[in-house]
């Protein structure tokens, strides 16, 4: 038996958003096994989790992430802007807009759906309490917001005005605005507040699995948005650390059958058709699934119109 004298230990830092904790715990082990088999080196992946925007800010300020796996492209775009941690065309480097899996927005309701919530329109009924995080800080919340807006646009007679009025009524039914997606889930599930939680599909499934299959029901709305949480290597950091090869492979492995399988297990919709067909009955069918590009002209426009200062979100709270 040869002593692995050349075997090195490589460390990667993966800065991720909130709901991926459980997923990356399992994925990191799988990747480590794969990498060791392939090169004989040990790879240790350290994780940091938090609100997507907050994490991006930390990386910009000096948190030396080798890879970022965040909730929306806009947050990773921010890394391209000041000082250039990554090149502007980062999203084209990996397939499918650098999003190895997708998710969508669904409703989580109490068992038996006592308030009869089936679609977005039900959320603005008086007496219905909706839990969703703040779009100012939570990536997931922005997907929620845009999904609601998209639904309103698709109603007969839908326009920007009716959509804004709808979203305004919706947010006035929200009693608690947590700063992160996970916080909102905690509020709904653990603290027992609210009638319906607007959540990432994978979060909703996870909550049901961890906290009570007998306590919640999942409701799929008629219109939702395809959430594409993207990933990227942080060029400046990996070049400094000399970890580019490992980091790139780490992200590519997400697209491999094994990576896709783990994603599906953790309730993310895989891109790989074969894996997807195996997990088909796990996911609800949503009649109309829109992407941010199709419905809103891309993240920059959406951010500027809705979530930046003086955008629609500020307006619905009376600025």
């Amino acid at each position: 038996m040869n002593l692995p004298l050349q075997a090195a230990t490589v460390k990667l830092l993966n800065v991720s958003y909130d709901p991926t904790r459980e997923f990356y715990e399992e994925y990191n082990k799988a990747f480590a096994a794969y990498w060791q088999g392939k090169t004989g080196d040990t790879v240790i992946v350290n994780q940091s989790h938090g609100g997507s925007g907050k994490q991006a800010r930390s990386v910009i300020d000096g948190l030396e992430a080798d890879v970022v796996t965040l909730a929306l492209a806009y947050d990773i775009d921010a890394l391209a802007a000041p000082g250039g941690l990554i090149p502007r065309d980062w999203q084209k480097r990996l397939p499918d807009n650098s999003a190895p899996y997708t998710s969508t927005i669904v409703f989580l309701v109490r068992k038996g759906n006592p308030k009869n919530i089936h679609d977005w329109g039900d959320l603005v009924r008086p007496g219905v309490e909706v839990i969703t995080p703040s779009p100012k800080t939570s990536g997931g919340a922005r997907w929620n917001y845009l999904a609601a807006w998209a639904w309103a646009l698709h109603q007969p007679g839908g326009s920007a005005e009716t959509a804004e009025a709808f979203v305004k009524k919706l947010y006035h039914n929200v009693p608690v605005l947590d700063s992160g997606a996970r916080g909102a889930t905690v509020t709904f599930v653990q603290r027992g507040i609210g009638d319906v939680l607007l959540a990432w599909e994978n979060e909703a499934f996870l909550a049901v699995k961890e906290l009570g299959p007998n306590k919640f029901d999942l409701v799929a709305p008629s219109v939702s948005i395809v959430a594409e949480p993207p990933v990227s290597v942080v060029d400046q950091n990996v070049d400094e650390h000399g970890t580019r090869a490992v980091a790139e492979e780490y992200l590519r492995y997400l697209y491999s059958p094994q990576g896709q399988e783990i994603a599906a297990k953790h309730f993310y919709r895989p891109r790989d058709a074969a894996v997807a067909s195996r997990y088909a009955d796990q996911f609800r069918v949503i009649p109309l699934l829109l992407t941010v590009d199709a419905a809103f002209g891309g993240w920059s426009k959406a951010q500027a119109a809705h979530f930046a200062d003086h955008g629609t979100f500020d307006r619905i709270y009376g600025k």
Partner: peptide, 23 residues
């Protein structure tokens, strides 16, 4: 920076566990 196992103090770790439903 909230890097698990590296830059989390006890109070931060409490928050992490809380957010993982591990009350």
């Amino acid at each position: 920076g909230h890097v698990r196992g590296l830059t989390n103090t006890m109070p931060l770790h409490v928050e992490i566990l809380y957010n993982e439903y591990n009350y």
